[in-house]
């Protein structure tokens, strides 16, 4: 993963690793914040460290829960939300969970928007699937992915968070903003529907 230059102060200790950066890449830095004081620089350093560690994972999460071409925009939007709300964040260690939650919510909103748009079709809408994924995925993987895309949003989110990110039920519940019982229900129903769909494929 690419390490990005961080502003001058290091990240707070509870955010994790020290802020990445190096003298060689300082020329790529777009400039210090105009009105920012020390707090702004600290915030930027902390969010930059989080970006380095979690950006790719969040883009992948967005793709797996249903976003396609704009997965990267959704991940970027999640970091923007975190940056704006950083002073109100109670615990910096909760930032990754917050980012996952924002990504899931944004993908759900996007899918709802697409459902509305598809009721009033216009020419030139982007295709749902990425050509690269279609080519690279093996046939059996593609069956699973197609079956997963056919599930309701909540069930798909629960399955991805539970079995791809290996989160506990409590963490999945916190990310999705629902109770642990609802997570169990979504996971069980999703797995049952997925198993049934895979059996029908054979």
């Amino acid at each position: 993963m690419t390490q990005h230059p961080a502003p001058v102060p290091a990240a707070p200790p509870d955010v994790g690793t020290a802020a990445p950066g190096g003298g060689t890449s300082s020329a790529r830095r777009p400039g210090l914040p105009g009105w920012g004081g020390l707090r702004d620089l600290e915030r930027e350093a902390a969010v930059t460290a989080l970006f380095d560690r979690h950006h790719t994972e969040l883009v992948r999460l967005a793709v797996l829960v249903g976003a396609q071409g704009d997965a990267e925009d959704i991940a970027s939007e999640a970091f923007c939300e975190l940056y704006l709300r950083w002073p109100r964040l109670r615990d910096p260690a909760a930032a990754p969970a917050y980012l996952r939650s924002v990504v899931c919510n944004l993908v759900r909103m996007r899918l709802r928007h697409l459902q509305v748009v598809r009721r009033h079709p216009e020419p030139g809408l982007p295709d749902a699937g990425s050509a690269e994924q279609e080519v690279v995925l093996r046939e059996d993987h593609r069956e699973v992915v197609d079956a997963l895309r056919g599930l309701p949003d909540r069930q798909r989110e629960a399955l991805v968070l539970r079995y791809w990110l290996d989160l506990s039920e409590a963490e999945v519940a916190a990310t999705m903003g629902i109770s642990c019982g609802a997570v169990k229900s979504h996971t069980a129903r999703g797995m049952a529907a997925l198993t049934k769909a895979l059996k029908e494929c054979r």
């Binding site: 930027e44 793709v63 995925l137």
Partner: peptide
């Protein structure tokens, strides 16, 4: 199978190299 397929699909996702710069400007 689900874990394997999710891992394979996640492996196909690539991020653009200038994602950080764009995100920083946006922040």
């Amino acid at each position: 199978r689900l874990r394997e397929a999710l891992g394979a699909m996640a492996g196909t996702v690539r991020t653009s190299p200038d994602a950080y710069e764009r995100a920083l400007l946006d922040w």
